[in-house]
Design a binder for these strands. Sequence first.
DNA 1: TAAGATACAGTACGTACCGTACCTTAATTA
DNA 2: TAATTAAGGTACGGTACGTACTGTATCTTA
Lengths: 214, 214
Amino acid sequence: MAEQSKDRKGNNEGEQQTTKSRRRGDVLENALLSAAWEELRETGYSRLTMEAVASRAKTNKNAVYRRWPSKAELIVAALKKHTPTPSLEAPDTGNLREDVLTLLKRIIKPMQMIGAETIHGLMVEYHGDELHSKMTLPPRSEDILAIAMKNILLNAERRGEVKLEELPDRVITLPVDLIRFEVLTTHTLLTDEAVVEIVDIIFLPLVQKLNKQG
Amino acid sequence: MAEQSKDRKGNNEGEQQTTKSRRRGDVLENALLSAAWEELRETGYSRLTMEAVASRAKTNKNAVYRRWPSKAELIVAALKKHTPTPSLEAPDTGNLREDVLTLLKRIIKPMQMIGAETIHGLMVEYHGDELHSKMTLPPRSEDILAIAMKNILLNAERRGEVKLEELPDRVITLPVDLIRFEVLTTHTLLTDEAVVEIVDIIFLPLVQKLNKQG
DNA sequence: TAAGATACAGTACGTACCGTACCTTAATTA
DNA sequence: TAATTAAGGTACGGTACGTACTGTATCTTA
């Protein structure tokens, strides 16, 4: 984002803006992203307007369009800045169940913060664009969450808990896919209990079954 | 939809409209729904406008707004009219695998016809409204596809293929949920092979496993 | 069959938001 | 200090929304 901010003093230290001076560069950019984030939380994606974001940031649309060409890209930038990026390192607690639960619980938080409406809205706006592939899931083999799951399973295999070659990609991504589905289609919050259910009554039994029969 | 058409001659017989007379009631309504359907296919949900629908139906927005208060409700009505409603009767081929495959293949077609962009668009527009629950999935126990799956499994239980009480709702809806997820997140078409995969490497192994351990 | 009600066709309007263009001026850089 | 950059401010043309108001074809009913 913000290709313009290449060579600029990152003067972010002036938190309290007493002088009525003109904000520039990163300061203004952060103000815009914060405004976008707040607008998103208060009015939701579909009702959020570029004008409202600009005016909340006490500037005008130019400052927004100079940086992001569309609402979708603005919001993606705001999400990157204002939602935690969970670590996708394999937890390695020495136990497959715990490892998977740990990963899933980690990734739930940012998903909840973003929310279904925003995800749906982004999917719609990207449709038809060349940007479409940025929102649509990549092939399972390239999906970063699939890779994280695979790393966990590699550790489990090292411990003799699973035989990885018996597990099709579809099974490996199953817990993650179910959580994504749940976030997209349920209006109630995704609880830790639901995550435990997915692992205990679907993923682990399936992994055990495939290990035996393989 | 169309609360106004309570007591009216359903004069749908005049297919070929030679007289330049004024269309009314169901004739006009069908013309509007067809126009909406065609616009949807040609321009997609997000770019479809009420004005374009009206003008394609050779009338004006009033005729549209008189019947459907929003684009979302218009489109839902158009989908009801122009996509097949698959039978949700349990197939009962005498074999669990075939029954499930038959059901899933049946429900795929209308999902494909509707398409991900429209579903996402509808989800966005319904958000915040009281209509939200119409688009969001109901609790598993009330989901019509879950009930269809349950009927299939009841037949299988009668044949001794499964023990239904061992199967949590989450498992029963699993194939259907995965298909819904696939339609929502994949841009490529959902193939019959993917359906077979879901059944053969996820659902059936899981059902077998839960039967044994239960 | 005439009177009355209905709802379609046509038009126009105010509003909202889009994305862009232009100008002035503050801040940064050379 | 001069030149350059990017901010703030404003205004514009364009699209689509949703509503209101006209006149009239059609249906209903008495």
